[in-house]
Structures are given as structure tokens and as C-alpha cells.
């Protein structure tokens, strides 16, 4: 019995190792943003409606999120400067989105800087992901 258990645990470990490094689901990403946000005073959860208005508004700069990702995050976007096509942002239209914490951090840092000239708060990030998860293909 012990032996059988041992073999199966090896199979399970091999299966996990075959996954791409750090791959997560968008729900796991949302949960980790929530964990971060929960530490801030007065946190009352995320709002998709607030996320949508954040996504579509300018924040003092030249661009909004929608400038590149368009008003419909399920549609392909276009880089405001180079014109390069950007794959859809909404997970319903592009399953790869919000599955790599490294990629998520990289792009939040870059794009929040471009749109707000500062880092986004966990609240803002969570609201936005909550909104993107409501967008249907």
C-alpha cells in the first residue's frame, strides 16, 4: 500500500513539473491581488463597475487603458505609438491573459506608469481584473 502511494505521488509530482513555470489561473491572480488589497484600510472588495470606468477613463495623461486595448477588451487592440496589434485582454477572449504573475506585474507596472504616471493600487488592479472577468467574448 505504501509502495503504491509512493508511485502515485511521483506521478503527481511529474505532472506538476510538466506545467509551465508559475502558471496560474486568473482566479488565483485575482485572489493574490485581493490578499494585497485586504491589507489596506477600508477595503470593501472589488467592483467591476468601478474597474470599467477606470479602464475607460484618462487619468491626467494622454492615454487611457482603452487607448490601446480599445473600449472592448475582448477585441484586439493596437499600440498607440507603434500600431502593433495587441491580443485581446479579456480572459474570455484570450485564455492566456492573467495566468502568469510575472507578466501581470510587468504590464501593470508599465501601463499604470504610462496612463497614471504612478503605480496602480491593489484596489485599482483588482477592480480592473474584476471588470475584465465580466467581459464576454
Amino acid at each position: 500500500m505504501f509502495r503504491i502511494f509512493h508511485i502515485w505521488s511521483l506521478v503527481a509530482v511529474a505532472g506538476l513539473a510538466a506545467q509551465p513555470a508559475f502558471a496560474e489561473t486568473h482566479n488565483e491572480i485575482l485572489a493574490s491581488i485581493q490578499k494585497e488589497a485586504a491589507g489596506t484600510p477600508g477595503f470593501q472588495g472589488f467592483s467591476a463597475a468601478r474597474g470599467e470606468s477606470f479602464f475607460k477613463s484618462k487619468h491626467g495623461g494622454e492615454w487611457s487603458c482603452a487607448s490601446c486595448h480599445t473600449e472592448n477588451p475582448a477585441a484586439p487592440g493596437k499600440h498607440a505609438k507603434t500600431g502593433k496589434v495587441i491580443d485581446p485582454l479579456a480572459p474570455s477572449a484570450n485564455a492566456e491573459r492573467f495566468t502568469s504573475p510575472k507578466k501581470v506585474n510587468k504590464w501593470f507596472k508599465r501601463n499604470c506608469n504610462d496612463v497614471l504616471s504612478r503605480a496602480c493600487t491593489p484596489q485599482e488592479k483588482g477592480d480592473m481584473l474584476a471588470y475584465l472577468l465580466t467581459v464576454k467574448k
Binding site: K81, K102, K106, K109, R110, N111, N113, D114
Partner: peptide, 12 residues
Amino acid sequence: LDKHFGSDASLD
């Protein structure tokens, strides 16, 4: 890279 031709393109 954080100020790369008008946008933030920073890497780790």
C-alpha cells in the same frame, strides 16, 4: 527602459 520613447518598457 522605464522611459522608452514615451512609454514605460521596463523589465525585471
